[in-house]
Amino acid sequence: MTISLTIYGIKNCDTVKKALKFLSSKSLPHEFIDFRENLISEDLYKTMEQGVGLEMLINKRSSTYRSLTDDEKQNIGYELVSKYPTLIKRPVLIQNGDVMVGFSEKQYSELLL
């Protein structure tokens, strides 16, 4: 069975770099998609949101989030995320429909190895 492993993020993000380094060090085949260069689809956004919930998916510590109006903060959805992709916490790992946000070597090991 082929494992479908995709990691979404921004290539210059340190946490994304750690996750990619971990995957490479374990020889785990994966695809990396920079969502700043390749906007995610609305369906993929819904998969991410349904997989981990909006609270976990949105990076509330980011300067992008802090610069939003109160109304925007209350109404985060695909339209806003497609306009400001850095609102999404990084990295987002999707394997066979399972979604994980952020990087933890322990969690990646438990999920992937």
Rank of each mutant, 00 (worst) to 15 (best):
T2L: 03
I3K: 14
I3E: 13
I3A: 06
I3D: 14
L5K: 13
L5Q: 06
T6E: 13
I7R: 02
I7A: 09
Y8M: 07
Y8I: 00
C13I: 00
D14P: 08
K17F: 04
K17Q: 12
L20P: 03
F22N: 02
S27R: 13
S27Q: 14
L28N: 04
H30K: 11
E31Y: 01
E31T: 15
F32A: 07
F32D: 15
F35Y: 15
F35R: 03
F35E: 05
R36D: 09
R36I: 08
E37F: 00
L39V: 05
L39W: 01
L39C: 01
I40W: 10
E42P: 00
E42A: 09
D43A: 12
D43C: 03
Y45W: 08
G51A: 05
V52M: 01
G53I: 11
E55L: 11
E55V: 05
L57Y: 03
N59K: 14
K60M: 12
K60I: 10
K60G: 04
R61Y: 06
R61A: 10
R61Q: 10
S63I: 14
S63F: 12
S63T: 15
Y65W: 14
R66M: 07
R66S: 10
T69P: 11
D70E: 15
D70V: 13
D71K: 10
Q74P: 00
N75A: 08
N75K: 15
G77H: 09
G77N: 15
Y78R: 08
Y78T: 02
E79Q: 12
L80S: 07
L80Y: 05
V81M: 10
V81W: 07
S82P: 00
K83D: 07
P85E: 01
T86G: 06
I88S: 06
I88C: 04
K89A: 05
R90I: 03
P91N: 02
V92Y: 08
Q95L: 06
G97H: 07
D98W: 02
D98R: 10
V99I: 13
V101S: 01
G102C: 12
G102E: 05
F103V: 05
S104W: 01
S104A: 08
E105S: 14
K106D: 13
Q107P: 01
Q107C: 04
S109L: 14
S109A: 11
S109N: 14
S109E: 11
S109K: 12
L111Q: 11
L111S: 06
L112P: 12
L113A: 12
L113C: 05
